[in-house]
Design a protein around this nucleic acid. Structure first.
Lengths: 108, 108
DNA sequence: TGACATTATGTCAGTAGTGACATAGTTTGG
DNA sequence: CCAAACTATGTCACTACTGACATAATGTCA
């Protein structure tokens, strides 16, 4: 994993650590994070396309503004369940969901 | 939703209830359940293809035999996070994961 | 610039998901 | 048939995730 990707992951709250420590983060965990990042991005895109604020979006999906912000930031405190549910509630189809997830990079 | 599908969902632990009560289960929730069922099926297929027991599989993914059984049954006590992680740990790629999720039926 | 809308960050009590264990039920091979 | 392997179901203490709230930071527009 290059430094840029590491920096990006750390920016959104993941403790990646040095290269040595990173070996503890196995491929599957990395893939999970990648999937999360893709879902977060898709959610942000979707809300913006709908032209609604985080508050409005939160009300529609039965959540709070702060959590929507965390979803879009790919925060570790947000589960994939919640991200996927948010996308589906906002009108995405399972097929679209699948495409988003498939975008996640193959673990190195 | 036809009776067969309803029966299938109830069999794996979802309270679908009568048609009237079912209206409370909105499209997004239905889609979430469909996604779960697809992931559960994929996991079972995958483990069988690997020809390992639930115990062995559980050890490899850092879980327990009982939880693997619940995963494969699509039990509501299992999160999509866990299902996806299990698939990835067992060697599935994000691309394959995406295809599985895309199989979920569009909410009626 | 200042007021206002929007988004980000931190915290917390309540709830849902977890691995582990026990045990019941089922399948498989002799 | 039996025994051994396998799978299903129920339970529980522990942890992680949740919405809500407060408040800080950033953006917007006149």
């Amino acid at each position: 994993m290059d430094a840029k990707k590491k920096a990006r992951l750390e920016k959104v709250g993941w403790t990646v650590g040095t290269v040595q420590e990173f070996l503890g983060l196995d491929d599957a965990e990395m893939a999970m994070i990648e999937v999360r990042v893709q879902l977060a991005r898709a959610l942000k895109d979707r809300r913006r396309k709908l032209k609604v604020s985080q508050i409005t979006f939160a009300e529609r999906i039965g959540s709070s503004q702060s959590r929507v912000a965390k979803m879009e930031a790919g925060d570790p405190s947000v589960s994939l369940d919640l991200l996927m549910k948010a996308l589906l509630v906002s009108g995405a189809t399972p097929k679209q969901l699948g495409r988003v997830i498939a975008k996640a990079e193959q673990a190195a």
